[in-house]
Design a protein around this nucleic acid. Structure first.
Length: 272
DNA sequence: AGCGGAACCTGTCGGC
DNA sequence: TGCCGACAGGTTCCGC
């Protein structure tokens, strides 16, 4: 579920809530998220450490720990971090509880068990983080960079923008919305994008993501904020999930096709 | 370089 | 009602 705006929403809510909170009790109810790490080791690596702050890189959450180390999390499709008061017993999709000094929990929930949690001493240990490309909200995501990078690729724009090694943080929903706003077809090869079009794409990317963050992300089915509230950006989606409905600009029915085994939604008339 | 397919899991929805 | 296939916002690996 979560793409950049959803992860950013979670990070902005977790950061002030967790800063200075010490982890006193970690309970693993299902260990899929831990990969090869034995639950006892995961537990031992975290208990006694204190959350210093939370930040985002692409779609990854990075929890800085005192006196050292990091907890790196990825929500994949259905992961959630929920702040909760004390609980008697785990709920159906609770995977890990992080018990905090002073009472209360951060709960990692994940219906589909695709999410990942990893404790590292330094961020360089994470191969996943090392692979990530430019963050679209960073200063480096400029029209100049975008135009140059696109010129070197024949991949369709949809695929290109979803490739986390090029641009980190975009997924199926926001790529659809961004390409619609930029007026660019999802099947256009990267190298066919001219400078003026790259400028539109750069601006559309920033605008769509910033607006989605202002609206606390998009909840289609699963995404929840740390207090279990939904996002609000779903009401502003223009093409995603709207096959057959009239384009909000030209009234042409929104089209749907499959790229990379994923649904792509677009306006056949506005996006060229 | 780029693409199709599969795998990791569970839940929901539509059709018959 | 019950069963079955398709589909779901992500990432990664493998083979061509």
């Amino acid at each position: 579920m979560p793409e950049l705006p959803e992860v950013e929403t979670i990070v902005r809510e977790l950061d002030p809530a967790l800063a200075g909170r010490r982890i006193i009790d970690v309970r693993v109810f299902r260990q899929n998220a831990l990969g090869d790490c034995p639950p006892a080791e995961f537990r031992q690596a975290l208990e006694g450490r204190t959350f210093e702050g939370v930040q985002r890189r692409g779609k990854f959450l990075i929890f800085r720990l005192r006196p050292a180390g990091f907890l790196i999390g990825h929500l994949r499709m259905t992961g959630k971090f929920i702040l909760s008061g004390p609980l008697e017993a785990p709920r159906i999709h609770d995977r890990v509880w992080f018990g905090l000094a002073g009472g209360g929990l951060m709960v990692f929930q994940d219906m589909r068990c695709f999410g990942t949690l990893q404790v590292v001493d330094s961020l360089g240990e994470s191969a996943s983080l090392a692979r990530l490309g430019k963050d679209p909200l960073s200063p480096g995501f400029s029209t100049r960079w975008l135009a140059g990078a696109l010129a070197a690729s024949r991949a369709p724009l949809k695929h290109w923008l979803m490739d986390q090694t090029r641009v980190a943080g975009l997924g199926n929903i926001y790529v659809a919305e961004i390409l619609f706003q930029a007026g660019l077809s999802p099947v256009r090869p990267g190298a066919s994008v001219g400078l003026e079009e790259a400028r539109r794409l750069q601006r559309a990317t920033r605008q769509v993501l910033r607006k989605a963050i202002r609206y606390n992300g998009t909840t289609i089915s699963n995404f929840r904020r740390v207090d279990e509230k939904t996002g609000q950006f779903q009401a502003l989606l223009k093409v995603y999930g709207k096959a057959g409905e009239p384009c909000p600009v030209c009234r042409t029915p929104i089209g749907r096709l499959r790229q990379q085994q994923r649904s792509t939604f677009y306006c056949p008339s506005c996006q060229v």
